[in-house]
Design a protein around this nucleic acid. Sequence first.
DNA 1: TGCTATACTGAAAACGCTTTCAGAAAACGC
DNA 2: GCGTTTTCTGAAAGCGTTTTCAGTATAGCA
Lengths: 341, 341
Amino acid sequence: MTVQRPARRATITDVARLAGVSIATVSRVLNGTAPVADDTVQLVQQAIEELNYTPHAAARSLAGRSTGTIGLLLPRLSGAFYPPLIRGLETGAKEYGFDLLIHASVYVPEDGRRRPVPLDERNTDGLLVFTDRLDDAEITRLYEQGFPLVLLYRAAPAGLKIPSVTVENKRGARSLVEHLITVHGFRRIAYLAGPDGNEDSYWRELGYREALAEHGIAFDPDMVGCGEFDDVRARAVVEEWLHRGLRFDAIFAGDDEAASGCIMALRQAGKQVPVDVAVVGFDDVPFARLMAPSLTTVRAPIETVGEVAVHQLITLIQGGEPVPFTLLPTELVIRQSCGCR
Amino acid sequence: MTVQRPARRATITDVARLAGVSIATVSRVLNGTAPVADDTVQLVQQAIEELNYTPHAAARSLAGRSTGTIGLLLPRLSGAFYPPLIRGLETGAKEYGFDLLIHASVYVPEDGRRRPVPLDERNTDGLLVFTDRLDDAEITRLYEQGFPLVLLYRAAPAGLKIPSVTVENKRGARSLVEHLITVHGFRRIAYLAGPDGNEDSYWRELGYREALAEHGIAFDPDMVGCGEFDDVRARAVVEEWLHRGLRFDAIFAGDDEAASGCIMALRQAGKQVPVDVAVVGFDDVPFARLMAPSLTTVRAPIETVGEVAVHQLITLIQGGEPVPFTLLPTELVIRQSCGCR
DNA sequence: TGCTATACTGAAAACGCTTTCAGAAAACGC
DNA sequence: GCGTTTTCTGAAAGCGTTTTCAGTATAGCA
């Protein structure tokens, strides 16, 4: 019976002492980096078991080993869009035995100076970058250092060969708006853009404009507002439109989240969707089919994006050659909010 | 013009050299742990600026400083339930200038041995524990070590004074089921439990049973299935019930996620909600009001749970006295899926 | 049998930081 | 002007790992 130690976490030294070997040996059995005699392995493993030892991640990464962890940088985590993405990432990470550490950068650089991101080359083996907060300078630095990076829903800064994975935004948006025009005969279609500088939004707007042009409808800047892919923002914009007396027979809400905001605003104002005005979204998040009316949207394979991204990242980490650019197909999903059926 | 260094990250030594001081001094201006002459501070800050230096978190935590980070341990991250929770946590963390690192433990201890959790006392200042994966032994160890811990939606293991925050599950469930009974006259009400061992589920079932008993309805074990708070699981269970010919006029789905699964199963089978069978959920996640039919449920202040939890944790971190147990009130939200209006 | 390659092991340096200790310089009190 | 604080600073130890280097047995081979 040994005396009860203070509940201090066991270190490699404790293990070594208990097993009667040097810490170097313990490290070796831990990592399998050099041959160790079977008996010794036994001893060490017993000691590890007994002390309930786990290596100190910080120390390990300090000493320059891999961390077995990949990081995800997000602007935020609220919204129906993220769960499927995360699920895809989890699936991918799990498959390769990596841990996923997530940082939602809630910080706005209010005081002018941006706070350092707590996830970087020193505590992860690679980074998935979704946020546009991480500026190009930081990305460039990491890239030049050879640190594995994969970009989600955004293209690499000019000149950098960083793999990125995204979806066919333009094509999806275009077919969606074309449906509105050709099937339902709508001509006054409003668009709710995403956050400023958002690439998804940029391409979706392009698809929207192309569809308009294709069918001889003039683009009217008054018909585009900024819903920021957010339900409350979108709601406010639509309320403002209504208040202003803007006429439209359909709204392409930018994404599903914003679509739900539109519907709430319209309902509040006594308008029926889709008979008075049609509303369509983008993404096909899980609740889209459950909404009243069920939402016509574009299915973006969000979960697949996650899986592919992790796959690319881990390929990179393991020294392989990743696919530089992945564009996942989108698919029109006709339900009722456009006026069908 | 200095020669372009390899894109190696600057260390404290680089800063010290550039500023012409010792690393100790740099550390001091960084942390304000001892008085430093104004001129020296200037010099050091200039050097930091120039080298774009950020301290190495791992090294810092190794050397025994606080990390400015709190960790969140979750079983998973997919599902409509999490976004509001996370939003609350983010709000709270931001308020105190802490970073939030999230680990969704996707790992099942398949090979018998549980993998170490990558978030612990060595890389965070405190931990929010949601998952039931983290076993009592580990919790106990951390607790005895004096490490700040707050439990979400679960009570502390016997004897440990760990603050926990949760919602009035029993009361909410009870009033929900009573509504079904007294207002709509339902007698055959099925219940979909959550994952095994889940405390929320335990209390909700208790509320369900109490309501039944109160109104002289016998509890029938055949009428409870396991939906695991998951839409696809719930859907499967309801399909199986239908297949088996189980009779029920209402389903209390355990949570909103499961409720949406129920509705899909029923719709698939040609049953109308709520005229053929009523469905009610729990949580009032954002999409509940948008569903068709809109979901009668119990509003659990998920976001508030997050905020309160962070608050408690940070109180603990800063050496204060936290509230040992917080029980947030729930509120019945009547919509249409129960048959009202 | 003697020599060499191989299996195994430990000492010690290194990773980037914080902190203690002690010393030097400046300020203060009389 | 002299002792005594106080302010400021640097050297060095230590945090828990990995890894290099230098061994010492042991096995293999002629």
